[in-house]
Amino acid sequence: MRYLDEEFRVKVGLAEMLKGGVIMDVTNAEQAVIAEKAGAAAVMALERVPADIRKEGGVARMAPVRKIREIMEAVSIPVMAKCRIGHFVEARILEALEVDYIDESEVLTPADEEHHVDKRAFRVPFVCGARNLGEALRRIAEGAAMIRTKGEAGSGNVVEAVRHMRAIQREIRQLTVLGKEELAAEAKRLQAPLELVEYVAEHGKLPVPNFSAGGIATPADAALVMQLGAEAVFVGSGIFKSEDPEARARAIVKAVTYYNDPQKLLEASEELGMGMPGLDVSKLQESELLQTRGW
């Protein structure tokens, strides 16, 4: 399949290495060190965590280069950074900076409301958000080497992450029982390339790792999305907006490893302090949702 050439395998390779891990949002070197010590498999460098972007409003852009560099120098684990949807110049700058992964993210204010970045034109790998199978396959067709379900970033509410993970897993399972002659119509409905639809139908999974993000705030939330099929977890505001970030970071790392072991999950959930305050996503206005950015 043309999507799976050698360069793409190297991009997916790093996503394979992050499986079973936690990728934590950090806004400075000090937080990055706390994350690494707690067992983060990677960090996401950004200027403000999603909860603050939501609260403060304004245009959210790529993090300042100085800040990303400071984080890259502080830790030995992979460092990711976000660019705005469609902002291929921010992406080029991040590639020149040699970040390990770029998240073309709906958490930042989109730069283009019609087009995503042509990710195949880059050597640095990309991760993109998705709410359903069609969206995931469109991003993979553009060159994304990792998918994360979008959830609702900065909400501290896992309900949207659950919805999106369930949707993708359900749609994948549905494809596997269709006849070959039914796949073209399905590709049309999903607005995704037939070749990728056929891959999913044959293998029962995406051709790239599928992680979960957007609203994960507790060890139990992390284990929940893992049990629903996530292969790793992104935690944004959930850690550094909680009362004791270090303890919570450790607890979430433990919960992702032992997601199927209730005794270990009990241990991970003890003595945690207060979690971040959450939002009722159903009370948010349509315009306040981050997940509807991108198509």
Partner: peptide, 15 residues
């Protein structure tokens, strides 16, 4: 396996 050695070390110690 492959992965992040710092993550594995942290879990090896804690567990």
């Amino acid at each position: 396996p492959g992965g992040e050695s710092t993550t594995m070390l942290t879990l090896l110690r804690e567990e």
